[in-house]
Simulated scan of single mutants.
Amino acid sequence: MPIPKNFTPQIRLSAKEKAFNQLQRWIVDGTLEPGEKVTDIDLAEALGVSRTPVREALQLLESQGFVEMRPGKETKITSIHPDDVLTVYPPLAQLQALAAEMAAPLLTSEEIAELKALTADYELAVKHENIHEAAELDEHFHNLITDVANNPYVRQFSDVLQLHIRRMKYVFLNQSASPKLQSAREHWQMIDALEKNNPEKAAEMMKQNWLRPMKDIHQLLKEGKK
């Protein structure tokens, strides 16, 4: 796929941050396709920056598993395999469960109310088959809990793993693989546990919320590769 020429640049960022954020976005949403070869010259021209910040950004993306670099030979976007879902989901489920456990005694009544509002909106989005809106609301729900947990390492690694999962969905999943209301029911159970300051139950429901769909998504990815 050709590198996009027209996009809204981000402001108040260093050249390296600008390159990193935009390249990561293009990789996650499939604009830069799995297995596609890229060059720092073309990317620098598209982004309107020099080659140095692009190379630095690519090195960071390689450390996150989005890019494969062979110095002096080629740089390409990492391919996606169906079994990757079985590698990504379990550690993310553990991290998110830890976040829920840590957040339980810290959540304010206002934050609980926000979690309820996000879940109600998520239910409506699913019922109306607004798939992208539902996915965004689901991410906001999980990110709020992770933010309250106030552990930068949990947040950092969760964010990277969630990006990999989002990338899989963009590349392979179609609208027939819509989010299910079961996820909303798990959210309500999680909120109930958090509101009652029950860290163990909140962690249990969080872990279930991530691991339950893993097998279904894995099967869909396998079918998408046929």
Results as ranks from 00 to 15, higher is better:
M1C: 11
P4G: 03
K5Y: 11
N6G: 07
N6E: 13
Q10W: 08
I11W: 14
R12M: 06
K16V: 00
E17H: 12
K18Q: 10
A19H: 00
N21M: 04
L23A: 03
V28L: 06
D29W: 08
T31Q: 07
T31M: 01
P34V: 02
T39Q: 10
D40Y: 07
I41M: 13
R51G: 04
R51M: 00
T52H: 11
P53V: 02
R55N: 10
L58Q: 00
L58T: 01
L60D: 08
E68T: 10
R70L: 13
G72Y: 01
K73D: 15
E74T: 11
K76A: 00
I77H: 01
T78P: 03
S79C: 11
I80Q: 05
H81A: 07
D83C: 12
V85K: 05
L86H: 06
T87M: 13
Y89S: 08
Q94C: 12
Q94D: 14
A97V: 05
M102C: 13
T108K: 03
I112A: 04
E114G: 02
L115M: 02
A117F: 10
L118G: 01
L124A: 11
V126H: 02
V126D: 02
H128K: 13
E129C: 09
N130D: 14
N130Q: 15
N130L: 14
H132Q: 14
H132N: 14
T146C: 10
Y153H: 13
D159V: 13
Q162K: 12
L163H: 13
I165S: 08
R166S: 13
R167A: 07
R167G: 00
M168P: 02
M168F: 10
S176A: 13
S178G: 08
S178M: 09
L181S: 08
S183Y: 02
S183M: 09
A184S: 09
W188R: 15
Q189S: 14
Q189T: 07
I191W: 04
D192L: 04
L194D: 06
L194M: 06
N197Y: 07
N197Q: 15
P199W: 00
E200S: 12
E200N: 15
K201R: 13
A202T: 05
A202L: 01
N209D: 07
W210N: 04
L211M: 09
Q219L: 14
L220T: 06
K222M: 11
K222H: 06
E223A: 14
K225G: 05
K226I: 09
